[in-house]
Design a protein around this nucleic acid. Sequence first.
DNA 1: GTCTATACATAGATAGAC
DNA 2: GTCTATCTATGTATAGAC
Lengths: 236, 236
Amino acid sequence: MLTFQEFRNLVNLSRREICKEIFTENQDSIKVKKEERVVRNLARIFEATLAIGNKKGFHAMSLRDLSKGSGLSMGALYCYFASKDELLNMIQEQGRRVTFRVMGEQVAGLSGPREKLRAAITTHLYLSEVMQPWFYFSYMEAKNLGKKEQKEAIQSELAMERFLSGILQEGAEAGVFAARNADLTGAVLKAMLQDWYLKRWKYTSRNVSVEEYAEFVIEWAEAFLLPPGGRAHEPA
Amino acid sequence: MLTFQEFRNLVNLSRREICKEIFTENQDSIKVKKEERVVRNLARIFEATLAIGNKKGFHAMSLRDLSKGSGLSMGALYCYFASKDELLNMIQEQGRRVTFRVMGEQVAGLSGPREKLRAAITTHLYLSEVMQPWFYFSYMEAKNLGKKEQKEAIQSELAMERFLSGILQEGAEAGVFAARNADLTGAVLKAMLQDWYLKRWKYTSRNVSVEEYAEFVIEWAEAFLLPPGGRAHEPA
DNA sequence: GTCTATACATAGATAGAC
DNA sequence: GTCTATCTATGTATAGAC
C-alpha cells in the first residue's frame, strides 16, 4: 500500500492543477480569457471561499467577505462566476470529478477483493486528506444546492457506496469475506471514511496520522469480514 | 435489550414534554407567561424551525419563513425568543440536556462492560431516532453558534466519546474486550452512531429499522473487540 | 398576547469609469 | 480586466394599535 507521501506525489492535486481543470470545465461562465491570470485568481477565490465557508457557512459568507478574503473587488469576482450559486456548483462538481477519477485510477487493476478493499479505504482517506476543505464543504453545503445539483450529489454519494459494497459482494462470492449485509457494511464503512474529513480537528489534536487511521479502519473492517484465523496473513 | 417501542414508552419525549422543559429553562427570555399557551406555540416554532432549517439551513431560513411555517406573526415570534441566535441556542441546549439525561438513565446500573456497550449503542440510536430532526440540526448548525456555545457543543461531543471509550477501557481491563486503541475505537463507533441521524433518508429508503441497525453496529463492534471464540455467547 | 407596519442594515448583483 | 459606486430586494428587529 502507498504511503501518504507517495500518494501525494503520484496524483497531482496542487491548487494550480485543480484550478486549471476548473477553468477548462467552466470557460463559458468565466469572462476572463488569459489562462495564467484566471488560474491565479481562481486559486484565490476558491481558497477564500473554502476558508470562510467552512468557518461560518456558505450562505453566511457575503460576497463582501469573499472580496476581502480573495483580494478581488466584487465587480471582478463576477468575471469568474455568474452568481453565488454557480460558485457553489463549481466547487461541488470539481470535488466529484477529482474523487471519481482518483478512486478509479488507484483501485483499477488490483486483483483480489482484499487488496481492492484496502486500496479503496486508503485512497479515499488519502484523497480526503489532500482535499479536506473541499470534502468538508461539499458535505456541509449540499443542502444549499439547486434541485438538480442536489440529485447529482446524492447520486455521487450512492455511487461511492456501491463501489464499496461491490467489493464486499465480490469478496463474499469468492469466499474471501464472510457473507455479511453488503449494503449496510458499505454504508457504515463510508461513515468511517467520512469521519476523517468531517472531524479533522479531532484527529489533528490527537496526533493521529492519516496512515494510522487508514490502518485502523482496515483492521476494523477485516475483523468483521474475514473468517477467524484468516486475519493474521498480511496480503503484501 | 429494550425494543424501540419499549424505549419510546419508557422515556417520555413527546413534543409537549420537550417544550415544557424548554419553557422551564428559558423563562427569562420568554415574555409570555401562561404555560399552556407557551407550550403550544413553542411546539409550533420548534417544529417549523427544524423542518425549514434542516431543509435549507438555519441561516437561509428567514423569520418571514418561520412566521409562515409556525403560523405566528413576526412580532409574536419575538415574544418567545430575543433573537434568531437565541432560538438556535435553545434548540442546541435542549438537545444536549435530553441526550445526557437519557444516556445516563439507561446505562447507569448495568454491570458488565459488554452490557454497557450494548446499552450505550442502542440507547444512542433509539434517542437519535426519536429526536432525529434535533440531532441533525445540532450537527449541521454547530458552526453558526457563538463562540461560547460552540465550545459547549464540542465539549458535549467529546464527553459522549469519552463515555464510549470509557466503557471500552473498562472492558479491556476486565479482560472482556481485546486491548485496542480505546480513543480511536470510540471515535469510529461514534461515527457509526452519527450516520444513523445524518443519513436518515438512506436507511428509510432501504427499509432498515433502528433495531436492525443497532444490532448490526453491535455485531461489528464485538467482532472487533471480543476475542475470537467469545463471540458466540449472548449476554441476555 | 398578537397583529400590522415600518425602520434600518446588509445582501446579491450590475453599470460605467479607468 | 478591475475598480468604485449604486440599485433593489431581503434580512432582522421593533413600535404601537388592538
